[in-house]
Amino acid sequence: MSFAQLIGDWHALAVLFVAGVIPNQIWRMLGLWFGGGIDEGSELLVWVRAVATAILAGVIAQIVVEPPGALASVPDLLRYGAVAAGLVVFLLTRRSIFAGVVTGEVFMLAGTWWLG
């Protein structure tokens, strides 16, 4: 792999800036700008935090329901089953992220292997 290939073309980097960097930094800078006047325990903050959590939950659901790249090769039910199995173990192990993630992964890999 040459040095030029590792850098890539400038057009792609410009696209990254327009479609990736600006859309993220806008919200962070708005948060920095407006966050100053908002009290830590205010009702508005309880609401925005709930919305933030729900939007992240939506992104989680989106990746599982409309999977990107190689994940699309895994059957729907196997993906949902993997998340459900992980969730059950996560709850049974008193919220161990590690146990939940490993269970979900093992479920998916075992299912893929079993389905051949």
């Binding site: 993220n24 919200w27 948060g31 966050g35 919305v51």
Partner: peptide
């Protein structure tokens, strides 16, 4: 991406006061 990034706004708002 802009829509997915909206959640950063309340995150920044809630974390900076800390």
């Amino acid at each position: 991406v802009t829509v997915s990034a909206i959640r950063l706004f309340p995150m920044v708002v809630s974390v900076l006061p800390l």
